[in-house]
Nucleic acid binder design. Structure first.
Lengths: 235, 235
DNA sequence: CGCGAACAAAAAGTCAGACTTATACGTCAC
DNA sequence: GTGACGTATAAGTCTGACTTTTTGTTCGCG
């Protein structure tokens, strides 16, 4: 599940990181390394390593004679999977989920189009397998099983696109789907239309029909966005 | 220009990071902290901080009794601006530039569509100003001036989209445009058609025509991709 | 000959303390 | 009020000793 549990500094990060992304220390707040080290009961060296990592995420900035200041939100490395996870665990998960889903709307259709051209036979097989798995878990409170296949499906599409930047969004999509299933009030069973669309996408990719794969995937992800907007406000 | 020049550990990063992304230490290679500290003439504490940062970028993994091993390329945090910069400075800049431009193709049209709906009057003004600035520098070897306005233009569109994830791609686009201008063999003057398109995009956004803004931006970014493919091979 | 357990070595991890350096802020002279 | 100067502060750096985990080897037993 969590990535940075390794080592003392990782443990500190998992406590301090979410605090910052949650806005517990608003941008401009100043923290002192020594004080933090005391609070988390670690040596300064360990604390410094943790601060360095937060700094590399652009969450904080460390300056002499000043301390460790929290940077404005719009400077954070919001594509860092760790940051995404921390933010999704926080209070403004809904807005976060929406931002990410909009990103999906932009990326995934294009990725599916490319996948239709570049996917190997093996990837096509895996894709249909996932789609069938989704169908199999689409009725009767099997949300967990459905989720697993859903994540795998989208990951394969992104990988099959052949574009490295798309492929690396697999983790992001996984987090979004998992967050939606676990934390949102999800309908008892997934939307049957969405299930059908996934099957059709798999078929379009196998057939090499880029245009169809793209527009079908657009429907999938637009549907996901719509579902999100139903559950939370915002225009 | 560079972000992590601050402190000794930042200096180490700027030397070691590029080496890794350049493939100088292939995935699976094992480095030892002490050895690195000696090589860069810094203390182990400083070296450890640098390694922690590389670890947070998923470039390396540090394990006891083993050392610091370079992770497979497909696990790197390729959205980290620092990593992007390192890779763009390396040998496989062409492929990198292409991946990023394909990402632009997916994201920017959607962002422009949203910008048409969400942009403030001030943002619209800035946008037209940038477009006019591009026109003004479109002829007579004024590539640097053109670049500045080009970057600003796309950054404004991404910001005006109102989507945080899009907005944070501003730096990425800036790197791509700068890389294209500085390192690729660029035509003497920018494509006149592209310049016109930018002006039209600005107008469409101001008019609130989302569909038009989206399709015009798609032309812009597809043109950029085509230009890239002309200069380097690959199917 | 194969296999498991105990052992030893290696490298990261952790800590404490002393020292250096940059810099924000207050003070004082003008 | 403005500028130069000094000082206090917190990060930055280094060193050395110690701990912990893990790998690989060796040795004994079946």
């Amino acid at each position: 599940m969590s990535t940075s549990g390794r080592g003392l500094h990782g443990h500190v990060l998992e406590r301090l990181g979410p605090s910052i992304t949650a806005g517990e220390y608003p941008p401009g707040s100043v923290l002192r390394t020594d004080e933090l080290a005391q609070r988390f009961e670690v040596s300064r060296s360990v604390m410094r390593e943790a601060v360095r990592v937060l700094e590399s995420m652009h969450l904080v900035e460390s300056r002499r004679r000043v301390g460790v200041t929290v940077r404005p939100t719009n400077e954070w490395n919001v594509y860092d999977p760790q940051v995404i996870r921390w933010r999704l665990a926080g209070a403004d998960r809904p807005r976060q989920l929406r931002s990410l889903t909009v990103l999906r709307c932009a990326v995934e259709p294009v990725a599916a189009g490319l996948a239709a051209k570049h996917a190997t036979a093996e990837q096509c097989a895996e894709l249909t397998e996932c789609a069938l798995g989704m169908v199999a878990h689409s009725r009767g409170h099997k949300l967990e099983g459905y989720l697993v296949h859903d994540i795998a499906f989208h990951r394969i599409v992104l990988n099959a696109s052949g574009n490295e930047m798309f492929a690396r969004l697999g983790d992001v999509v996984a987090e979004v789907l998992a967050g939606r299933t676990h934390h949102q009030v999800m309908f008892e069973d997934p939307d049957p239309a969405a299930v059908t669309l996934h099957v059709q996408v798999a078929e379009a990719v196998r057939a090499g029909d880029a245009g169809l794969a793209e527009s079908l995937t657009r429907e999938v992800v637009l549907g996901a966005l719509q579902e999100l907007d139903i559950l939370s406000p915002e225009g």
